[in-house]
């Protein structure tokens, strides 16, 4: 059976399971990619898009729409899967991930897929683009060009936060007070060479961020309801400290054999590993939504 999205809101359990499947199957078909840091994004992304994000497939260039910058560009298979689930493109396009000529590039590419607000993948850069967007939209709002002040979400990684540019950007947020900018840190504790705390520890992170004059909160990034509630509670003001949400997640989140395993940062599962992962997601041989592999040319 070819893959079809289950009915339900993005945060519903069947959809989140299907997103995990689509992430793993698209990476499997691409024979490369970053499953660990994509899986850790599922709850964050669905919480944003389920009631906290103004944008629709039928009006993608609405100037008052909310924006999302995925600064940790390697997690993009999760965003692609979600855009497909939301109806931006057909699920079968996910088979084109990382393939020559396809718009679903290995890392977000604005020119090939304009919904990617920034081209990222060289870490530390999306944060600044997100800040520029937030400031520009605020100028437009204050001049009356926009009736609504759009929100700008920026998702970054904990490993990524070792980049100096991230701290340049956060420092400047303390000055410009972009109250429409919401950073969400996917704190999945892992990076290519090992655990973040071993490669280059960021802690005490919340204290550091508070010292940068950000509105800092720390939440359980594995619980979609918690993230959704946190996002709902944010009151957008034109001039206020930027929001910085540390979402404590797990690399490989939601797939038992991949959770906390550093090796799953940047490699595709083989056929056997894919089967094991899907069995962990759905129960043995249970594939309620079909498979992206059905009808694929590989």
């Amino acid at each position: 059976m070819t893959f079809t999205w289950p009915a339900g809101s993005p945060t519903s359990s069947p959809v989140r399971l299907a997103l995990r499947q689509a992430i793993l199957e698209s990476i499997f078909l691409a024979e490369s990619g970053h499953p660990g840091g994509s899986l850790s994004l599922v709850e964050i992304l669905t919480a944003i898009f389920d009631g906290n994000f103004l944008q629709s497939p039928s009006d993608q260039q609405n100037p008052e729409r909310d924006r999302l910058v995925l600064s940790k560009g390697h997690g993009v298979p999760a965003l692609y899967a979600l855009y497909s689930q939301l109806g931006y493109f057909e699920a079968k396009e996910l088979r084109g991930l990382r393939k020559s000529g396809h718009f679903l590039q290995g890392h977000p590419d604005h020119l090939r897929y304009p919904l990617m607000e920034a081209s990222t993948g060289s870490l530390g850069q999306g944060v600044s683009v997100a800040l520029g967007l937030a400031l520009g939209l605020r100028v437009k709002f204050e001049k009356g060009e926009l009736k609504r002040l759009p929100k700008v979400y920026c998702i970054l990684g904990d490993g990524e936060s070792q980049e100096g540019q991230v701290w340049e950007c956060l420092m400047s947020c303390g000055k410009f007070l972009p109250g429409n900018l919401i950073f969400i840190l996917d704190a999945n504790e892992g990076q290519i060479d090992g655990p973040v705390k071993e490669v280059m520890d960021l802690e005490p992170l919340a204290d550091k961020l508070k010292a940068f004059r950000l509105d800092v909160s720390e939440i359980n990034g594995q619980d979609v309801k918690t993230i959704q509630d946190k996002l709902k509670s944010i009151e957008i003001k034109a001039h206020a400290p930027a929001q910085f949400i540390i979402a404590r997640t797990l690399k490989g989140q939601g797939v038992k054999s991949m959770e906390r395993v550093i090796d799953w940062h940047g490699k595709a599962p083989n056929k056997e590993e894919l089967k094991r992962s899907l069995d962990e997601i759905y129960g043995e041989n249970n594939r309620p939504n079909g498979s992206l592999l059905e009808g694929a040319n590989s």
Binding site: E117, A118, G124, Q125, G126, V127, S128, V129, A130, L131, G132, L133, A134, L135, G136, L137, V139, K140, E142, G164, Q165, E168, C169, M171, S172, K175, F176
Partner: peptide, 25 residues
């Protein structure tokens, strides 16, 4: 209101400029 002194932080300045361009400036 249309000037941003980014301090001595050129990397961030370049990214912010790209974001402002994304907002049609």
């Amino acid at each position: 209101d249309r000037f941003f002194n980014m301090g001595i932080a050129e990397a961030n300045m370049i990214g912010v400029a790209a974001g402002l361009a994304r907002a049609d400036f």
